[in-house]
Design a protein around this nucleic acid. Sequence first.
RNA 1: GGGCGAUUAGCUCAGUUGGGAGAGCGCCUCCCUUACAAGGAGGAAGUCGCAGGUUCGAGUCCUGCAUCGCCCACCA
Length: 869
Amino acid sequence: MDLPKHYDPQAVEPRLYARWEQNGYFHEEPDPARPPFIICMPPPNVTARAHLGTASTFTPMDVLTRYHRMLGENADWLPGVDHAAIATEAVLVKELAREGVRREDLGRNRFVERAWEWSRTYGGAIDAQFRRLGFGPDWQRSRFTMDEGLSAAVVRVFVQLYREGLIYRGTRLINWDPGSHSTISDAELEYVERDGQLWRIRYPYSKDDSSAGVEIATTRPETMLADVAVAVHPKDPRYAGLIGRSVWLPPLFDRAVPIIADEAVDPEFGTGAVKVTPAHDPLDYEIGTRNTLAMPSVIDVEARITGADVPVGPYVGLDRFDARARIVDDLRRLGLLIAETPHRHAVATSDRSGDIVEPLLSLQWFVKAAPLAAPALEAYRSGRVRFVPERYGRTYEQWLENIRDWNVSRQIWWGHQLPVWYTSAGDEVVAESEQEALEIAQRTYGTRELTRDPDTLDTWFSSGIWPFSILGWPKKSAELRCWYPSQAMITGGDIIFLWVARMVMLGIHFMGKVPFPDVVITPLVFDAAGRKMSKSLGNAIDPLELAERYGADAVRFSILRQMRLESQELRYQESRAHEARNFNNKVWNATRYVLALPEGLPRAMTLPQPSSLTLADRWILTRYRDTIVRMGNLLDEYDFGNAAETMWRFIWYEFCDWYLEATKADVNRATRAPVLSYVWNGAMRLLHPIAPFISEEVWLALPHDGETIVTANWPDPLEVPTFESDAREFAALQRAVERIRNARAEMGLTPRDHVALDVPANVPEEVSALLVLLTSASIERKGPAGESIGDAFSQIGVRTPHGLLAERYRKQAAQLRSEIDRGEKKLRNEAFVARADARVVAKEREKLEGYRGELARVEAALAKLKESA
RNA sequence: GGGCGAUUAGCUCAGUUGGGAGAGCGCCUCCCUUACAAGGAGGAAGUCGCAGGUUCGAGUCCUGCAUCGCCCACCA
């Protein structure tokens, strides 16, 4: 076999992936005879491209699916794509703008057609990227949130919730995103700290005398036009006498508003008096509702001043920010602007468009959240849904406790149109089809004149039913029976509210069961300097570029290796991929060594009789079995970082550095081929979920069973013989080797310069042979026998020139004396001896004895050295 | 304002139930030894953020503080 010296992932990865997919290794059919292992892929936006954060969230899903498939479970990773209503619409509107066309010019039908076309053309981009990274979801089952089946499920859910009274239409204060020209839900708000102004403004008692009045503080003077009251705290002594009086509303002075008392006012902030604008502020809306105040609007959907409800004078038609500037100027001129101070505050912005969100009163559709939230809370509190890391559960809990009704109607065209029709009289008809709507309208209202609601549903409405809609719900499919609920949900912490909580709520409501028992939250990706990775910062790393340079296995391995179970961040830099590439090369070259053994590898994977196994064989088998057990535990706990690290250490530092070297000794030659073949084959299977490509390439080159490692069996620890005491002996040998190498280096000898070793007589021949190999030393003389083998190991010594040796002994003696000193001090401490665990004390005594013995030996050696000098 | 996380070697991080401070990278020295220089061997390097407390004993438990970060929240 003639393999190149360097592993070339580019030559291997695409070839293997194509084979996997063609042979359908990722595909599964529901099989009630085996335990299911299902992961529903969080559907990436149709507009999305993979970045490092995507890679860090999706790689664990691939790892788990591959692991459970190898365990023989009915494992399937269900992929899909989200239509991403607002994001896609924004892309299209922009594209149209370049052609000089507005959405309205095109018309709804043609616009939606174009969105479909766009989705088909560009929507597959991330799938190709996933393939490049080695992800193996069941592509044959890929779904799109807008496809026929899912759309039908969405309609069914909407209609059922409506009929249960859990969806209603009403005028409420909603978040208006002027950028996307639509409402957005509370969960899509992002509060961004910005520098603004806080203006203190006097509302005079009399329209003719501006010198006396109540001073209020505001950051948004443009909303003054819609003020309906001034509110103070009921217990605020400054205003006690003023409650019930009224003040005139500047700058137009066309009406007076009352001074009212409300608990919500913070007397500490500003002047302790607040203007109340129910139509344009969430807190004011509450105050307005409590006090049954009028709710005029002065800002429209274009974020311009409108005079539809109240007079707005010269400000009509102005943009909200222009109006703000004009009003401030006018107040200043009127002498009513008392103060203007810089003020940093959190401004609600749309996390989609980035525009400042405008609270507006609007007639919209809402999901009644409380009845759905209660069971979702209970599911968490009873442990039927748990979070990893645990602390994210509290985030989920707090949100559900304070949940508000969910505004689900959007004023965009790309998405699921509401299954809602209106009669000319304004009666609403909710039905699964136009046909059904007409029948209901005829029956209930005696009309067949219906207009359909133009709004579409929030994207997260369809994502919320993802765990069962993709299984064919509402049809009673085999998939639904076998694969709901899934076994784990893996996603980013940023969508616990937007998505996870809603899946739990809707899953319980429609399926009667939580959609998944475990929610694994993956970390955010930062650069090495601790800055969030983002395009705008210019520190983003493209995982696909990394894959081109270092291979997909290296990308995956390096990401996983940086993951820490409890950490909310993952720091990454390109050098990590470089290291992982080196690791893969190590794997490759170890394979070259194994395949090039002159005696060849046995065809069958059977081990020699235990009695014929050498010390090194027994050690690596023992370590191999420990590694299998550990890997299983770590993957079961979602501890991907330690799992990756465990494979790294086992393969590089145990298998390659020690076992492989040991097989070069003559004493190991009889058994090495079967043991190498056995362990290396198993190691590749353990490695496969993490580095699917190289493990497959190597596994196929070794003696193996089956046509692919993808469906090979996960190693069974119970089938691996272990030899605990031999393993300990080998570990003692390792320490001896390290000691000798160290001594040699200190003497300034190169590996070619042979050193002479004093080896006690009772050190077995086999061990001596290993020693010689691992240290390129020769055994010149056998010293006196040690009491035990372990003792004998510690007595193996290097023959060294006098001066160097004396120096070394002195150093050693000094170190030992300090250890002895520490131990003695501890044992002189009566409290320690009396109160500490007896085993700890005994261990301490033992250590002290050991040190004393060693010191005696060293001192004797030193004395002898002096004598002979 | 509230909640949560982090702080250990120059960098990124381990340190399971309290009992002699660890790894990788980087750095320095030596070695192209017939799997691998994308490699091997060795080495230097830390007041475990600060201050208290509990304990025979604290990187580990408790309290406070500092710095960085994440999430939530109606200070207009």
